[in-house]
Nucleic acid binder design. Sequence first.
DNA 1: TTGTGTTTTATTGCCTCC
DNA 2: GGAGGCAATAAAACACAA
Length: 298
Amino acid sequence: MAGGRVYSGGASSSSLSVLLQNQRGPCASEPLDSLFLSGSSNSSSASPFLGSRSMVSFEDVRGGNGSNRSLFHQYEHEDNGDDDLDEYFHQPGKKRRLTVDQVQFLEKSFDMENKLEPERKILLAKDLGLQPRQVAIWFQNRRARWKNKQLEKDYEVLQANYNSLKADCESLAEENDKLKAEVLVLSGKLLHKEKESETSELSDTNKVSQEPPQNPTADSLSECEVSKVSAVASKQEDLSSGKSDIFDSDSPHYTDGVHSSILEPGDSSYVFEPDQSDLSQDEEDNLSKSLLPPYIFP
DNA sequence: TTGTGTTTTATTGCCTCC
DNA sequence: GGAGGCAATAAAACACAA
């Protein structure tokens, strides 16, 4: 139905006359600000309906500095301005842009309340010399623009959060690599010591074995170290085998020390005990037995 | 001047609410 | 069922570089 619309409203000659009479001096550089004060003396703003706080008279808006030569202004300054204006506003099938002042007026009204009650719509339309439907359409489009802006802001916030999480994740991966290397070194040491003790045992059995039994690892890693290595190894294996839920958005429960370090302290699942394995002793034992070489737990 | 991208005004169709 | 809101879209108006 494009083009079928007839702008019967437009800016009437009478309203334009009022507009011209309301030309103000340069001091009114912010002409709209005063219009939304409760003490506004214009007639329309005294309307008793609910939305009147954001309803002001467009007549007062015309007090601007004239720097924005809108179409309104252009037509105003012509000798036969009213005729041309009527002609302009009544061109069927032609879209006409709202004047700067009209838009400012609508913007102020929108800032006050972005929803448009019927009474407010009528009064706005009357004051602006527009069709009520035009005012409604303007508010509708304005709400759409506002929503887009909000979406952009939300997107920026989400992106910042994502970047922060990504940085956390990368540092954790780095730490993970270091721990893996450490496990390798310690495992190698264990293996070496174990072999040493085995060879010494073999040589001892060849001799007379009447002496009391010695702890084979007395001068090597302590039992505590062994259990630490096994726990770390099992955790490493757990992470590298795809059990990690860092990237698993469907897994909301982060209960191990590594994962919970990126959670908010206020989170109920925020548990961080660096000196304790997050696994139960049974799980730890099972994992360690299954993942570590048999010589650790003969 | 013209081609092109952006913004603004307006329409259409669908949905929800009373 | 009608009114109003919203998303998608069309199209006019505008801005601007080449």
